[in-house]
């Protein structure tokens, strides 16, 4: 049973009055409903009958019929149109020739396309190289800039070295060893900078210290009646090595020599313990 709504849509569709989504939806409904399809067909046929009711007009021109029939060329071969037997023979060769030329044509096309592709790849490679070159140039500039900075830094260091060389000429370097025989393997070197009133002591193979003991450095300056205290230090228990920066508590005019004694923990103002090392 078709409802009024679908009857209306069918009538409008039969007169081609449905548009857009309404038409799409109705045509979809037609595919699902044979009864609705039959109604549309009947209404289309009915609408076509309205052509008979068109108001009269003068007849068309007399030559219209001839023009139509002259244009209507038969599209189906009549029984008299027999295809010659020779046709397939040359038709095959013609087809082969067509195939050959088509193959040559497409091969040429393919070659051209490949050439174009190769050119494109080549251009891309050149572009990449140019980009690489520019990158390298940029890196070179950066390196040069860095080199210039390094050069300036080196120049600064050179100036500092030259200045330090002037200091080194005034440094006092003293080798220390055991004279008492209590640490025959021990050695030390003391470097003293009189301008800065500071020095460095490097010792090796001194005996390991007891917990309540320290080694103490002494600077021998003739202007003082007793050695000047250079500070206490400990050594690596395993190796007996140490590196000590020292700055005496008094001004040292002439660092005649250096000595290391074994003292109680924390050091003493005047040497009391055994002398372990002394400069020669």
């Amino acid at each position: 049973m078709i409802d009024e709504r679908h009857e209306e849509l069918a009538a409008l569709h039969a007169l081609d009055l449905l548009e857009g989504e309404e038409r799409t939806a109705f045509e979809a409904a037609l595919t699902r409903d044979p009864e609705l399809r039959r109604l549309v067909d009947a209404l289309r046929a009915t609408a076509a009958e309205l052509a008979h009711a068109a108001p009269a007009v003068p007849p068309p021109s007399a030559d219209l019929r001839a023009r139509i029939l002259n244009t209507a060329v038969p599209v189906v071969p009549t029984p008299g149109d027999v295809i010659p037997l020779a046709l397939p023979a040359w038709l095959g060769w013609a087809a082969a020739a067509c195939f050959f030329f088509a193959a040559v044509f497409f091969a040429g096309k393919s070659f051209n396309v490949r050439g174009d592709l190769q050119s494109a790849l080549e251009a891309e490679r050149v572009a990449r190289l140019e980009a690489g070159t520019l990158k390298n140039l940029l890196e070179a500039e950066r390196i040069l800039s860095r080199a210039q900075l390094d050069h300036l830094a080196k120049a600064d260091r050179l100036i500092a070295d030259l200045r330090s060389q002037a200091d080194v000429a005034r440094l006092k370097i003293t080798s220390l060893a055991s004279l008492a025989g209590n640490s025959p393997q021990a050695r030390a070197i003391a470097v003293w900078n009189p301008d800065r009133q500071e020095g460095v002591l490097v010792v090796s193979k001194l005996p390991a210290l007891q917990a309540d003991k320290d080694y103490q450095l002494w600077v021998i300056d003739p202007q003082y009646p007793i050695p000047v205290d250079g500070g206490v230090f400990t050594v690596d228990p395993a190796t007996g090595d140490a590196r000590v920066n020292f700055k005496p508590g008094k001004n040292v005019a002439v660092a005649q020599t250096f000595a290391v004694s074994l003292e109680r923990k924390g050091g003493v103002p005047k040497a009391e313990g055994p002398m372990m090392l002394i400069g020669n």
Partner: peptide, 16 residues
């Protein structure tokens, strides 16, 4: 349009 076309169909049914 619906009523007119349906009535036409019914009237012309013998010749459709």
């Amino acid at each position: 349009i619906r009523r007119g076309l349906l009535k036409l169909r019914d009237t012309l049914a013998p010749q459709l």
